[in-house]
């Protein structure tokens, strides 16, 4: 789960203060684990250093919370690349995938593409597991099946999400 990419994605809507960013993040993705301020500023500092965001101004007063950040072109490219890269199919991907889908919707990108890409990656992994299972012994088969069923569960969630993208887009837009 990349907080950096998520913050970048949120900045695509427009420049924000660090405090706004944390609130936006918590609202959408931080259901059970809200971000600490420290995490936000550490991440922003890293992004600033890499040239993915820029400071756009400081309001009267002082302290990091008064600074406002904007995404740079390099930042947009980085978000794009991140969205287009499937997550390595592994267990408990929901958070990352969900974030990606929401961000794609927020930024007007194709959330379906994100899902299709991910499905493809999942299936590729599943194919490998299936081949191993077919050629291997029973222990192999059992281990592979465990993974396969979990991956399948992910994919089913994916399909369900894809089917409900319209609904999600409406909620996100609010």
């Amino acid at each position: 789960m990349s907080i950096g990419h998520t913050l970048l994605g949120l900045l695509e809507e427009g420049p924000r203060h660090g405090y706004d960013l944390k609130r936006a993040y918590d609202e959408r993705f931080g259901l059970d684990r809200p971000l600490h301020y420290g995490q936000v500023y550490a991440t922003l500092a890293r992004l600033l250093r890499n040239g993915l965001v820029a400071e756009t101004g400081t309001e009267p007063g002082s302290g990091p919370e008064r600074k406002s950040y904007a995404i740079t072109d390099a930042g947009v490219t980085d978000v794009e690349r991140w969205l287009a890269t499937p997550e390595k199919p592994e267990l408990y991907l929901q958070n990352t995938l969900y974030t990606k889908v929401v961000l794609a919707l927020l930024s007007g990108r194709s959330a379906e593409d994100v899902l299709d890409t991910q499905r493809s990656a999942h299936l590729a992994t599943m194919r490998k597991l299936t081949t191993r299972k077919t050629n291997g012994d029973l222990a192999d088969a059992l281990i592979c099946d465990h993974a396969l069923f979990h991956l399948e569960a992910d994919l089913r969630w994916l399909e369900l999400t894809a089917a409900r993208l319209g609904e999600l887009a409406k909620e996100v837009a609010e």
């Binding site: 499905r119 493809s120 999942h122 299936l123 599943m126 194919r127 597991l129 299936t130 396969l148 399948e152």
Partner: peptide, 11 residues
């Protein structure tokens, strides 16, 4: 079903 589709070469 993904597990069935996994027997394919591509989808």
């Amino acid at each position: 079903e993904a597990r069935v589709a996994a027997y394919s070469d591509r989808e």
